[in-house]
Design a protein around this nucleic acid. Sequence first.
RNA 1: GCGGACGUGGCGGAAUAGGUAGACGCACAGGACUUAAAAUCCUGAGAAGCGAAAGCUUCGUGAGGGUUCGACUCCCUCCGUCCGCACCA
Length: 874
Amino acid sequence: MSSTKASERYNAPVREKHWQKVWEERGTFRTEERSRKPKRYQLEMFPYPSGRIHMGHVRNYTLGDVIARYMRAKGYNVLHPMGWDAFGLPAENAAIERKVHPAKWTYENIDTMRAQLKAMGLSLDWSREFATCDPNYYVHQQRLFLDFLKKKLAYRGPAKVNWDPVDQTVLANEQVIDGRGWRSGAAVEQRELTQWFFKITAYADELLRALDGFGGKWPDFVRTQQRNWIGRSSGASMKFALEGGKLPKKLATLEVFTTRHDTIFGASFMAISPEHPLSTHLAAKNKDLAAFIEECRKIGTSEEALAKAEKKGFDTGILAVHPFEPDVKLPVYVANFIVMGYGTGAIFGCPAHDQRDLDFARKYGRPVIPVVLPPGADRATFAISDEAYDGDGTLINSKFLDGLGIEAAKDKIASLLEERGIGARKVNYRLRDWLISRQRYWGCPIPVIHCETDGIVPVPLDQLPVTLPKDVAFDKPGNPLDHHPTWKHVTCPKCGQPAVRETDTMDTFVDSSWYQFRYTAPKAKTPTDKRALQYWVPVDQYIGGKEHAVLHLLYARFFTRGMKATRHVAIDEPFASVFTQGIVVHETYQSENGDWLMPSEVRIEGEGAQRKATSIATGRPVTIGPIEKMSKSRKNVVDPDDIIAHYGADTARLFIVSDSPPDRDITWTEASVAGAGRQIQRISRLIDQVAERRAPKPNGSPPSLGPEAEELRRTAHKALNTVSQSIEGLRYNVGVAQIYELTHAIQAALDKSVDKSGDGLDWAIREAAELLVQLVGPMVPHLAEDCWERLGYNTLLADQPWPEPDPALLVDDQITIAVQVNGKRRDELIISRSASKADIEAAALKLESVTRALQGKPVTRVIVVPQRIVNVVA
RNA sequence: GCGGACGUGGCGGAAUAGGUAGACGCACAGGACUUAAAAUCCUGAGAAGCGAAAGCUUCGUGAGGGUUCGACUCCCUCCGUCCGCACCA
């Protein structure tokens, strides 16, 4: 490059700090409190303050920031807040392992991470920041809890937990490894505790039905997974009389829930859960059964473990009488794959038409009677081997049901059950109530008091918040709140007698179930502020990880309904639109002795099959492993700070938005980051060259333009159109590709025209360059701001309205369409956009390439799709 | 085990109301600039084959089948990878 200025490198780290200061000083991203503008609530899932931000955060917040900045430019009053999901298990682990108080650990992490996020140049309104561990936040959550309690949306009930007998503590499923506590190594037991629940099942049907209205706004997979999670199934309850043992009256009939009551004549056994009252009753007098149940307990509480376990049963010797064939008696087993939490915790087994039942029947030698004949199958020869048949068909071997279809048979059985009073049509849900009790310190205290005389007493509102004691010890096993010397001892607010506080804290999913509302009025004296809510909710676009597809998003949906029932909000659904991003993945590296190495500790040479890695520290060879999700355990992490310090935040941001579609996983590679860094420099240089031209600012209507200038304008306006659409559709990678094409076009124009006047090229270059700067603004905001200044403006780019494309420049008069012969492309045709079918056909048939491909065969048909394609069929 | 998604050159990806597959970028090769290197710019390229060249032919979107004038796109079967499974967040 000829000029000295144009060859100067853009010093991103320095300029980024400058612009961040300018934005902060001017309060550029402060949300307007009172505004006539339309609102836009842009939210990304807030982070858990684990220590330092990771690339997943960088991705999440970059994706959101692009929209937030774009919407701001589009004239919206944007709410784009940030806070901290600050309660949770890792803080307590740190307390145990490093003897740091959870609060200290958490707030130090928050300080670190806040500084890191600020270095990313996000357009956040930091004045609304809060942490969920702050009593100013959780006081409102306690109030919500009490309101839920009043409405019976919160209640106490029994639940099974993983109990570590050595650590005297409840374990999370992820803390149970192969049936043992992760810290103590002790065999984990199951204990039944009285726990707090939220009554999410009260809204099961509503939560399910509302999903239908999310089409196009929520990812389909999230909707499907939530549907499956709620798991509505309509079937029937059915009572079986029991024989063969002295059973108390309550246990003498066994009720099951089934969705396949049509297959009742194929029933060959009964199975009940190890936790079923009948199991417990029988085990009291049967040591072998008690041992079996004990064995089942060791499988754990997770559904996954239960499903993977080998199916086992224990014959109780009790028999169940078939409701429609009194002579048929079915043995009752206790089986490890029957879950107490679903239906009634008991089933009848029909091996021919259910795979699990079939596996069980084969194992325990129960008969397999087919009762549904597949269409076209021969009744005489149809048999079940090792695969159950769960398809459609006609009933056989089923007395009065024979010949009926499945639905008709279900209907008949259900009617009979109801007539005889031994069952009924029933809708069942897989969804269970939300267990919110946690026997942990670092969570929101549940604000109730247990009194011997008055029972459960809510803490009076004027005594909220119930704050966590600061002086806690983590050296003893168990819940620190429980063995704190004074904290739990209080007087009953009702009778004044000594009483104890609830020492359970809330699941941290509660904290994140309503934070989206708190941002709209973070300092309000009540949980929410009506006026602020009215303007801001719902969240217009929520962005976060796929792993939250069910739990977090479903809980927040439930909580919103609960808050509506308790008059804290007026809407049902918190998130109008949801987007789930992919994860950030990276290669893994292992030294000879199997230790994992960080990417920064490895030197890579060569490429393809020749690619080799060595340890920088030792010079020894390193094995390059598969590409996996970035994780501390695999050490395949790249610290965002290092990237920002070296290349600048814009490079990290550009890397995030180029190439990979936001919803797919993105592979972090050093080469691609360096590539993004080069693009930053390229744009910077380009703008310098344009600025040096001192071309007129493109105010008013364009001068008369030569063909090159006209072409450049078309390219620029098409890019503007594509980029706008790509941002709105969260397909940034497509927009970035357009931006690169635009930079090429501008560069080519710059190289072409020197001192030529009258063709308006300088004018077009100037216009294209300004558009380019505006288009990259949401993605690489610091660079864009810098370029805007270099183009001679003393305004902030962040305050500029988003440009509008000239529609006339978006459509070409001449277009190229493909010409096929028998479906194979043989040529192309440049033709007027408005060409008729006949014109296109005639033009195509005249082509020599078409004649040649036809090889003299007569044309039978010509398919013409105007503006797209012509296909000559011979 | 159950539920859900994804699969396109060496790599990330583009093209979906079924209509020119491989835009754009990375890596690579050649060239320009340079004493040299870095940086930068230009050019090339899916694979195989034919041709001196312009160019032409065939094959190609995880595998196999189907629908269609035409399939990355729709349907069926299979394979692989990833995510969730209720106390991680």
